[in-house]
Design a protein around this nucleic acid. Structure first.
Length: 211
DNA sequence: GACCAGATATGCT
DNA sequence: GCATATCTGGTCT
């Protein structure tokens, strides 16, 4: 399994968002006595950049979003709604504010740790951006973290045979939601709104002639 | 499926 | 000072 290096990420955010599907996130928890390892696979992403009204970088650099203007392949973590953290992976050359929101992941290793952390079982553990942060113990402490290094690493991996990628409108935002910058592995049970929602969303857009 | 509360950092006026 | 937010979980229908 190969690491993801910055040059892989140092592209248009849409390209990166698509490329990240199927890649793995490795999270190391605990101290030397009790090391716990969680591995998940990315199944849903959304692209944002500073030309995008929905992006945190649209209004320029600030203390909150400085990581997004840094080099590619780092963690941009933000706190929202007073209680949730969400994880983005910075995706462009230094100085350009762009990133990819990780919306949903599929557990690969350490499922029991994830279920313990979430207090529930099944797809509900990681099928949302704040859910997966809670499952992987991701918070402000990892803000700006280089994803080539422990305790949070990104590893390149490809799609499985028979898997397909789709682009749909984005979710949960009030501006520029119509842009098809949400990328997902179709029919994956861990998608944040499930296959039915995606189908409905797609057919609605096709009817509008915006596909 | 629809609706709503939750609790706070951030940015705009 | 105030509105908003890349959301979730619980309740009600």
């Amino acid at each position: 399994m190969a690491r993801v290096f910055p040059q892989f990420l140092d592209q248009d955010a849409d390209v990166v968002a698509r490329s990240l599907l199927g890649c793995r996130i490795v999270r190391i928890l605990g101290d030397e006595g009790t090391i716990e390892r969680i591995v998940v696979r990315i199944v849903e992403t959304e692209a944002y950049d500073q030309f995008d009204p929905a992006s945190h970088t649209f209004h320029g650099r600030s203390e909150r979003n400085r990581a997004m203007f840094g080099p590619a392949g780092h963690a941009y973590i933000y706190f929202t709604y007073g209680m949730h953290y969400c994880l983005n992976i910075t995706a462009a050359a230094e100085g350009f504010g762009a990133g990819v929101l990780i919306r949903a992941v599929e557990p690969v290793e350490g499922v029991e740790i994830i279920e313990r952390r979430r207090g529930r079982t099944g797809v509900d553990c990681t099928n949302g951006p704040a859910k997966l942060c809670k499952a992987l113990d991701i918070d402000k402490a990892l803000y700006g973290h280089d994803l080539r290094l422990p305790p949070l690493m990104l590893e390149q991996s490809s799609l499985r045979p028979g898997e397909h990628v789709a682009a749909t409108a984005r979710i949960g935002i009030s501006k520029a939601a119509e842009l098809r910058r949400r990328f997902l592995i179709t029919d994956n049970p861990y998608l944040s709104h499930g296959p039915m929602w995606t189908e409905q969303c797609d057919s609605r857009r096709t009817q509008q002639g915006t596909a």
